[in-house]
């Protein structure tokens, strides 16, 4: 056996292993550092309860994020209400109606493209459709652009989850004489329920931190607003505005908002995972 060759192979292997450990460690270190800064700066802002009760302040004075939190909840909620039924039905079409046909493959491909499309493009689209014709920014346009981002996520997971439902279940229901829509709603949906719920939660997580599409649809609002036809504040847009400013109060609020969003997104993701793993076992 050629000892020199064995040694050089071993050496090369050790170098790669060390590099691999090193990049993993530094990658995790940086990502932890980001979360750490977020927690340190965010907690000090969130511990001040006026964050949840007061409106966004004018420059240089203290206040809260109440209107931005409310706006985020309203627009995310509305977007979810729009995207869920549409996305589930579109996913149903791909699996229960046209499985394996060219039209299903085309829709699936386009849907996958939309999943990874830059969200700012969606903002431009909704701007030309819903802001330009009406002449003003509106919370409704913001909700629609979030719905467009959530939709492909719901379609994709619905499709994946319905594909897991065994055909035997459907056939049994058909054999009892149930019409197709009844088989889908009472058998397929029920069997895939936890999976569908996971998809919706992931979609909510995805849109709750989106900033770019809201910039030119819902814009921002310094005051509390219940009016869907008017501009509405949201956490991400407020963070963007406040973090870029030179005022210490605004910057601290931006950290507080960033902390809230990350917390919500992580909780939603962990919840979705918990449901998914429970349904698998």
């Amino acid at each position: 056996m050629d000892i020199a060759l064995v040694n050089s192979r071993k050496r090369r292997n050790r170098i790669v292993a060390i590099l691999s450990y090193a990049v993993t460690a530094s990658g995790l270190l940086i990502l932890t550092a980001i979360l750490w800064t977020l927690v340190i700066n965010g907690l000090s802002a969130v511990s001040n309860l006026s964050l949840f009760t007061e409106m966004t302040p004018p420059p240089g004075s203290s206040g809260g994020l109440a209107n931005a939190i409310f706006g985020s909840v309203v627009m995310t909620g509305l977007a979810t209400l729009i995207a869920t039924p549409i996305g589930i039905l579109a996913g149903t079409f791909l699996v229960e109606y046209r499985r394996g046909t060219w039209i299903a493959e085309l829709v699936q491909f386009v849907n996958d493209m939309l999943v990874s499309a830059p969200s700012i493009i969606v903002g431009l689209f909704v701007y030309t459709m819903l802001v330009l014709p009406f002449g003003h920014f509106s919370a409704f346009a913001g909700a629609i652009s979030l719905a467009i981002i959530a939709l492909p996520v719901v379609v994709r997971t619905t499709q994946d989850m319905l594909l897991l439902v065994p055909n035997g279940l459907r056939e049994a229901a058909f054999a009892l004489g149930a019409p197709k829509w009844k088989v889908i709603t009472t058998v397929s949906y029920r069997a895939a329920f936890q999976g569908l719920l996971t998809g919706v939660l992931l979609a909510v997580a995805r849109i709750s931190g989106e900033t770019a599409p809201l910039l030119f649809t819902a814009l921002n609002n310094q005051f509390w607003s219940n009016d869907l036809t008017r501009p509405m504040a949201s956490l991400p847009v407020t963070i963007f505005q406040f973090a870029m400013s030179p005022y210490a109060d605004w910057r601290s609020l931006a950290w507080g908002g960033a902390f809230l969003i990350t917390f919500a997104v992580l909780v939603l993701n962990i919840g979705a995972r918990a449901i998914a793993s429970r349904s698998r076992s």
């Binding site: 579109a90 791909l94 299903a104 939309l114 689209f125």
Partner: peptide
């Protein structure tokens, strides 16, 4: 039910086309 599912699946295609046309 079938009509709705069909329509919403098409909506995915319409969205992409709409984005291109509007831009």
């Amino acid at each position: 039910f079938g009509f709705l599912a069909w329509g919403f699946a098409l909506l995915v295609l319409v969205l992409l086309t709409g984005v291109i046309v509007s831009l």
